[in-house]
Simulated assay, not measured.
Amino acid sequence: MEFTKTTEAVSQYDHLEQMSVSDLLKHINTEDKTVPTAVERALPQIIRLTEVVSQKLKAGGRLFYIGAGTSGRLGIVDASECPPTFGVSHELVIGLIAGGDQAIRKAVEFAEDSHAQGWADLQAHAVSKNDVVIGIAASGTTPYVIGALEKCNKEGIVTGCITCNEGSPLAVTASYPVVVVVGPEFVTGSSRMKAGTAQKLVLNMISTAAMIQLGRVKGNKMVDMQLSNNKLVDRGTKMVMQELDISEKEAQQLLNIHKNVRSAIQAYRNETH
């Protein structure tokens, strides 16, 4: 199959500058509605990748996301949310972006064009065969990402990817490719839109399912979340109250002592049995 970038295809809408705000938003919403269906079509690929991620994490390995621009930022967002949500180490899921941390806020010109820098950034974290590396690139052509995955393949490191172009160099390079074909963007080539949304949905699926597989959720509750603000302390209190059928005051006292929902519940049960 000949490779064509559908993410760069011409928008199905034209004369956008002549549209009202209402029409602009309705059309964007119409396009956005197609994204979950595109993700659903990629479910078999997402399942295969998530299963290997879960296996690697259970065996003591780490998960790396590596990308440039919007794709890189999305990986960093997902990685940064794992410790507070699931109580894991900041070193378990690591997001890397072309141009380094400064590129999170401000684009670094031509950073994504280096074929060697992605592997160098992974080496700075002592990446090994125990780990899994997921390259994120809507276009599927980003040298920074492709170069990193090619080197990982040579070193026997498991590779996955999240891209939105079928048959792209990145999809061909990754051992576990996830290809979510969302088609042309509302604004031609603006892959931060549908493609970015698709990538975010897939990242949510991978990390959440993997953390559940690691035992970081009990029932449907985030029992290992960090109690880092009043909202989360209140949520944790309600979890303890519900799980143990005790008063709010008792639950608060338990959390004050144990600083963790799972530990508070376990300690109470140990004391009462």
Rank of each mutant, 00 (worst) to 15 (best):
S175I: 12
A198M: 09
D224E: 04
N29P: 08
V108H: 08
L244D: 05
L244W: 03
K106F: 09
G236L: 00
V202I: 03
A38P: 02
L63F: 14
H90Y: 12
K238H: 09
V187C: 12
T142L: 01
A137N: 09
K58G: 01
G160E: 05
A9I: 10
S191W: 06
N130S: 13
Q199D: 11
T163M: 06
K56V: 00
L214Y: 13
Y144D: 01
C164V: 05
Q213K: 10
S54L: 09
C152G: 10
A103V: 12
F110A: 05
Q45Y: 08
L92F: 10
L170N: 01
I134L: 12
T141C: 07
Q12P: 06
G183T: 15
D101R: 15
M239Q: 08
D245A: 10
N230K: 09
L227V: 12
E2H: 04
G67S: 11
E155A: 05
Y176M: 06
V181S: 14
D234S: 13
N229R: 04
P83F: 14
S190D: 01
R269K: 14
Q123W: 00
A264C: 10
V108M: 12
L74P: 04
A59P: 00
L16N: 03
A103M: 14
R62C: 03
E185K: 13
H273N: 14
R192S: 07
Q18F: 11
V10G: 00
Q102D: 14
M241C: 07
G236A: 02
L201Q: 04
V217P: 06
T159A: 07
A267E: 04
V233W: 15
G147I: 12
A138T: 12
A171Y: 00
T159I: 08
A68I: 02
E8V: 07
V127W: 13
L96C: 01
S54C: 13
R48E: 15
N29L: 11
I146W: 04
T50G: 05
L25K: 04
G156L: 12
S191M: 02
I97E: 05
T237G: 04
V127S: 07
T272G: 00
T34K: 15
T272D: 10
V39P: 11
T188S: 03
A137I: 07
L24Q: 13
A111K: 13
T34P: 00
I104D: 01
L122V: 03
G67I: 06
C161H: 02
N165P: 10
P143M: 01
E81M: 13
T4C: 02
M211R: 11
A42I: 14
E109P: 05
A251Q: 07
V179S: 00
I206W: 06
Q252W: 00
I134P: 14
E155V: 08
V35F: 11
D23K: 15
V127Y: 12
E243I: 02
Y144C: 06
Y176Q: 09
R192K: 10
S168K: 12
S228Y: 03
V179C: 00
L122R: 08
Q213E: 06
V93Y: 08
R216G: 03
M205F: 13
E2T: 11
S228L: 02
C152H: 09
